[in-house]
Each structure stands twice: as structure tokens, then as C-alpha cells.
Design a protein around this nucleic acid. Structure first.
Length: 656
RNA sequence: GCGCCCGUAGCUCAGUUGGAUAGAGCGUCUGCCUUCUAAGCAGAGGGUCGCGUGUUCGAAUCACGCCGGGCGCGCCA
């Protein structure tokens, strides 16, 4: 409706004044001023050199009728205030029943969302959860908007972090491949690796030269895929991926494809990308300077290069800005592999993986992985080119994501580069109090800071499973208190649903650029702007509907317009309007790449409902028509709120 | 040094195509459970939107310059 209004206004203005203009629409400060307002006449006034109020008046009277819009009014210095037809609005919302978002278009281009992508060498922590929850949520929002989304999780199973843990087992713990295989099958292996990884860092400190040598040799063995180190690396990485999948499953996060670095290497993806980059001249072999022998991507210079004084000095400096893609020893850096992977995502590499089912996927789920083994013909067509790619990666890697995009541009794929979206977000840090609660010794400087950075290397961080468990315990205690009548299983299921709601909402309510200073107290809060608050509103509605049976749609709709006007109707109208704005919020979330918009919407709708709940006692309403109307309204609110929460990956329990 | 991000109420944050009186949650204080679940509601208090200049009919929002904080710039990922 908003879209239609915008178009009609723009068309009318073009016809009447011959001015092409994008019509801005905003929410008026007060509901008495209408449901939407446009300051477009101020802009027109400037172009036409006439008084804004006068133009507004002309448009208000001259604009042909728009379905769903009751009238336009001129307000203030020249605002156009729009008043919707409340009965029509109710009708369309009530009739949209179970219309699941916008219709899914089978012909839609594929969109890839890559998220999680945790190094498979230790348990997941709270920072990884922000990544996974953001990625999972934007994927849900895009799907709901009709996009064909494929979710991938990149597994760096041949990287240095895996190598570090291998070194820990081999050289510190003196474990054999068989030992590690046994340990990896046990619960808690991910936690064991967490601790070991932190100790390896200290181990390196003792003899830096030896550490570096060990690391280089182990990494090379793992990359080439032979020897005990490689075997151990595979066991560790595969096992840890299994732990990660189960952790994420607890938050209803799943994946279609695990794209592994081992296949990028062994199926020669990098070689193919390397050849293309060389051919296009996107990378160059450095012959002098400290990068001699490396293949580098020259730093992109924006604007004019300065050729004046101290040119030698400058060149020297600029050279250090170049990005090394292939090291002088011939091994490729992470960015290089990422360029190959990104090319594949857009179908520009000219190669494809083989696929097989991941053997260790969570119960009831099929997850696929890349493989050098025989291709399973039942696998979905993962190699189909994507039209857009969202890479959910923290903001510290912005520079590297730019290099990847630069690589695409260098190969002449400007469009793919433009459709490579670095869906960036800032870190989750710990409040100093939280860090010391975890037993971390704070330096004097750290204690003064507002937050302390999580560090896998130091083993400092809140492990994802610990946090989820802690939340479940807290919610379970509360559920037991309130619902002694439930079976133990019901109590646990309810507590779990609430815990997930609390955690996901907590991670989603902040915009992406906000550093979250994590504290158990905030995360364990169930009051105010939280997931449970939103869930509670749904639970209240369900309670009413259990006792009040179904609304009678015919009766409710016939009388709706009557109840939505006047001083008493204003509040009801406000709630209905808020309920109807979900698509708007979802579109805004996609446009701004900001899932927090949907979280904000859900909270505001829940808030509007709670307000309504206290003003109107539905079941004791004597007026039969009004009762039917109020029930109908709660039905609409429930549907929209449940939908909004589902976009956030949050379910509402029946009782809580 | 260069690049990116941030600075809004006591605290944590919204305010993203520039728009009408700058909002929410938490915390504090005051009320509200024999009535659909109080994980709730109502009310009070709380602001030089870091500072300055500029653009504009209009700036928390845009530009430039400062101040303060964070991150990145590695033959790590």
C-alpha cells in the first residue's frame, strides 16, 4: 500500500509539474497526523520556486483516488499527510491469512549466504554465535522476501589454526593418531581443543624459531594431505565441525553446504584462479623489494598518484601496501583461496566441487559437503551461479574482503564484485567484570576499558554451549516455578524455546556496527526489550484464544471500520497499523542489511499489544460484535508477531 | 602515517533515502494482580545529540576541521 502510494504520488507530480522526483515518505510524529507523511512539497517548492503549502494543497485536491487511501491533508509548512482507509486496511490484513510472505519465485536467481565459518579447531564462542545468528537471520529474511537462498559454511580445515592443535597433540601431548581418533569421538573434545589451543600459543613463545618451523612443516603436510599430521588434522577438523553443527542446531541454525578448503586445494580451484589472475594481469610477480618472489595484488590507488617529491620514499611505502597472494615459497594465502571460492560462488571459475552427504550431521538433517570422492548424484546443484553473495564476516576483515572484490574486478567481473556483499558486523567483547568472572587475570589497563576482546589464542571467551546451557538452566528454573502442572519434558522444551529466544534476540537487537559488550546479567535478562518479552505477548494471545475460541471473521470484518475510529478506536488502529507494517520492516532490513530492524519491529508490536491487553479485557466484553472484533485483532497480531519472530529464528511457546 | 567504525538520558542502545515536540530498555521513584499469565501495565524524573564551522527553508543525520575511543594496514587467518 505504501509502495502504491509512493508511485501514485510520483506519477501525479510528473504529469502535473513535469518533475521527476523520488517521493520520500515518513512516519508522522503523531497518529492524528495520519499514517504516512511526505515532505516532498518542500523539494518541489525549491524546483518550482513556489510556496510549498500551495503546491501541497494542489496535490491534495488534484490527486486521483488511490485504493486504500481515505484522504490527503496539508499540514505544517507543506507536509502532505496521508490517511488510510481503516476498514480496507483491516480487510486486507485479515484476508492475507496465511499468505507466507511474498510468493516464492522459483525462477528467482540464487543468493548465497555464507556464515559461521569457524576455524574447526576448538569450541565455538559467543562471537561465533553473533556471526551465525546474523547470517541465519538474514537468510530467513531474504527467503521470506522470495529469494532462493543457499546457506554455506566455509570450513578452513587445512589452515594454521588446525595445524596448531595438531602440533599440540603431537608435540606437547605426545599423542598418536589413534589416540586422537579416540578422544575426538568423546563428548567434550571441542572443549579439550579449546584449552590445548591456548596452551600451544604459550608453547610457541618458549622457542619462537622452533615453533615457526614446526608450524610451517605441519601446515604444509596438512595442505598436501599426507602424513600423520594430515591424518590427525582431518580427524580433528571433522570432529570439531560436528560439534559446531550440533551447537548451532541448538539455536535452530543449519546449513545446506559445508564448503571445505581441502577441496579448494585438492580440486585445483586455486590453480584455476591463479591462472586467470595472472592472465588478466590482476596480480604481479614482485621482483624487487622485500616482497621479491611473491605474487602480489597492487594496492588500489584512489585518485591521482603523487609523483612529486620523495617518489622513491613513496614507492617504498606503497609497496608495503600491496597484498601478497602467493608467498615466495609458492604457497597461497587465505585471500587467494578466498578469491577462488568467491569466483566459484558466481560460477566464474569454470570448475565445480564434487559433493557428498556430511556423515556426522545433526539428527534429522541433511548437510552436504564438498569432496574429492565420487559425486553423489542426489546432491543439489550447488555449482549453480549465484546472483548475489552475502559473506558474513566480522568488520576486522574488511580489508581482505576488499581485496577479494578487487580480484574479481581485476578479472573483469565488476558486476560480481558489486554483488559481493561483505555483511560485516563488529565483535562481541566481554565486560571486564565478565572476563574476571571467567577467571581471566585483567591487566590494569584492561580493567579500565569498557570491554575486553575475546581471544581464542588466550582461551578467553564465553563458550557457546556453556552460555546456551546457562540460559536453559535459568529459564527452566522459572518455568518450573510457574508451571508445576507441565511434564518435565514440556518444561524443558519450553525453557529451551525461551532460552533460544533470549539469546538470539540479544544478539540481534544491536545494529551490526555496535560492539556488544557481553555480560551474563544482560544476556540472562528476560524483561524489557528481550526475546522472552516478545514471546510472552504471543503466549498471552494464545491464552485468550484458547479460552475465547476462534474469532468470527465475518462478524469481525463487517464491524471493523466502526471500531477503528474515534478516540477509543485510535489505540486499536495504532495496534492494527503496527501489525501491518511487517513487510515494510522486512524490506527495510534487507535494504539496510540490518536484521536489527526486524527485531525492533517485533518488540514494538509486542509492546503495542501488551498496552492493548491492559486496556481491553476481551473475554469479558459484553458487546458481541466488539468481542469478535477484538478477537480478530488479536488473531492478526498473533500471526504477524509469530511471523516476525520466525524471521528472527525465534519460536513462541504455547505457555511460559 | 593511511583506511574504516564509533561518540545521543546515570548505564546499554535505536533513530540508515536530511523533516514536525530527539525515542526505547535497564536502573531510580510512585501506583496497579478475587478479572484473558505481573517474564506485564501506567506515571514521574532524566538530553550543550563529543566540539566547531559550513551547506540547507530545515541537520543527531550531509561536508570540512578538531577532540576522544576502537579496529585494520603480517610471506597469520
Amino acid at each position: 500500500m505504501i509502495k502504491r502510494l509512493r508511485e501514485s504520488l510520483a506519477a501525479h507530480i510528473k504529469e502535473k509539474y513535469g518533475v521527476e522526483i523520488s517521493v520520500a515518505l515518513e512516519k508522522p510524529p503523531k497518529l492524528e497526523m495520519g499514517e504516512a507523511a511526505s515532505p516532498v512539497c518542500f523539494e518541489l517548492a525549491k524546483r518550482l520556486k513556489r510556496a510549498p503549502r500551495q503546491i501541497a494543497q494542489e496535490i491534495a485536491t488534484g490527486l486521483p483516488a488511490i485504493p486504500g487511501v481515505a484522504r490527503l491533508e496539508v499540514a505544517g509548512a507543506g507536509y502532505l499527510n496521508v490517511f488510510l482507509d481503516r476498514g480496507t486496511f483491516w480487510q486486507s490484513l485479515f484476508d492475507s491469512k496465511s499468505a507466507a510472505g511474498q510468493a516464492k519465485d522459483a525462477a528467482a536467481h540464487k543468493v548465497i549466504v555464507e556464515h559461521t565459518s569457524i576455524n574447526p579447531n576448538k569450541a565455538a564462542h559467543i562471537g561465533h554465535l553473533r556471526n551465525a545468528v546474523l547470517g541465519d537471520t538474514i537468510a530467513r529474511i531474504l527467503r521470506n522476501a522470495g529469494e532462493r537462498v543457499q546457506v554455506q559454511n566455509y570450513i578452513d580445515n587445512t589452515g594454521v589454526q588446525v595445524a596448531d592443535v595438531v602440533i599440540g597433540f603431537q608435540h606437547m601431548e605426545k599423542k598418536s593418531v589413534a589416540d586422537v581418533r579416540t578422544m575426538a569421538a568423546q563428548p567434550g573434545f571441542d572443549y579439550l581443543c579449546w584449552d590445548l589451543y591456548a596452551r600451544v600459543t604459550q608453547f610457541y613463545e618458549q622457542d619462537k624459531a622452533q615453533g615457526a618451523a614446526l608450524r610451517g612443516a605441519t601446515l604444509r603436510a596438512i595442505e598436501e594431505g599426507h602424513g600423520e599430521a594430515a591424518e590427525m588434522g582431518t580427524i580433528i577438523a571433522d570432529a570439531i565441525v560436528g560439534f559446531h553443527l550440533r551447537t548451532m542446531k541448538r539455536l535452530t541454525i543449519s546449513y545446506e553446504l559445508l564448503a571445505r578448503e581441502s577441496e579448494i586445494l585438492h580440486l585445483k580451484f586455486w590453480d584455476a584462479a591463479f591462472a586467470k589472475l595472472k592472465e588478466a594481469g590482476a596480480i604481479q610477480l614482485a621482483t624487487t623489494g622485500k616482497m621479491a618472489g611473491c605474487w602480489i595484488m597492487p594496492a588500489e590507488k584512489d585518485g591521482v598518484t603523487r609523483e612529486d617529491t620523495e617518489s622513491a620514499q613513496h614507492e617504498e611505502e606503497e609497496n608495503t601496501q600491496d597484498k601478497i597472494i602467493v608467498r615466495s615459497n609458492g604457497t597461497v594465502t587465505y585471500v587467494g583461496k578466498d578469491i577462488a571460492y568467491q569466483l566459484w560462488k558466481f560460477g566464474l571459475l569454470g570448475k565445480d566441487f564434487n559433493y557428498k552427504r556430511w556423515p556426522d550431521s545433526p539428527a534429522g538433517e541433511t548437510v552436504w559437503t564438498t569432496t574429492t570422492d565420487a559425486d553423489d548424484p542426489a546432491a543439489p546443484h550447488f555449482g549453480e551461479p549465484a546472483s548475489r553473495v552475502y559473506n558474513v564476516i566480522d568488520t576486522r576483515q574488511s580489508y581482505l574482503q576488499d581485496v577479494v572484490a578487487q580480484g574479481l574486478r581485476g578479472l573483469g567481473h565488476a558486476e560480481a564484485a558489486a554483488n559481493s556483499i561483505h555483511f560485516s558486523y563488529d565483535i562481541v567483547a566481554l565486560t571486564p567484570r565478565c572476563a574476571s568472572e571467567l577467571g581471566h587475570q585483567l591487566s590494569r589497563e584492561d580493567a579500565k576499558k569498557p570491554y575486553v576482546e575475546v581471544s581464542g589464542r588466550k582461551g578467553l571467551g564465553v563458550k557457546a554451549d556453556d552460555l546456551i546451557t546457562k540460559l536453559e538452566e535459568a529459564t527452566l528454573a522459572e518455568v518450573q516455578k510457574r508451571h508445576a502442572e507441565m511434564t518435565e519434558d514440556e518444561q524443558k522444551a519450553t525453557a529451551h524455546t525461551i532460552a533460544v529466544g533470549a539469546l538470539r534476540f540479544f544478539l540481534l537487537k544491536f545494529t551490526r556496527t555496535t560492539i556488544i559488550a557481553f555480560d551474563f546479567e544482560d544476556a540472562l535478562s528476560f524483561e524489557g526489550e528481550t526475546g522472552p518479552y516478545c514471546q510472552y505477548a504471543v503466549v498471552r494471545i494464545r491464552g485468550i484464544r484458547r479460552k475465547g475460541a476462534e474469532a468470527e471473521p465475518g462478524k469481525a470484518t463487517a464491524q471493523a471500520a466502526k471500531f477503528l475510529v474515534g478516540p477509543e478506536g485510535a489505540g486499536l488502529w495504532e495496534l492494527l497499523l503496527q501489525a501491518g507494517m511487517l513487510d515494510y520492516a522486512s524490506d527495510a532490513a534487507i535494504g539496510a542489511q540490518e536484521p536489527a530492524f526486524v527485531a525492533k519491529y517485533a518488540f514494538q508490536l509486542a509492546q503495542a499489544f501488551n498496552n492493548f491487553y491492559h486496556k481491553h479485557h476481551i473475554l469479558s466484553e459484553q458487546d458481541v460484535e466488539k468481542r469478535a472484533f477484538l478477537l480478530g485483532l488479536t488473531e492478526i497480531v498473533e500471526r504477524q508477531l509469530v511471523k516476525a519472530l520466525s524471521l528472527l529464528g525465534i519460536e513462541a511457546p504455547e505457555r511460559m
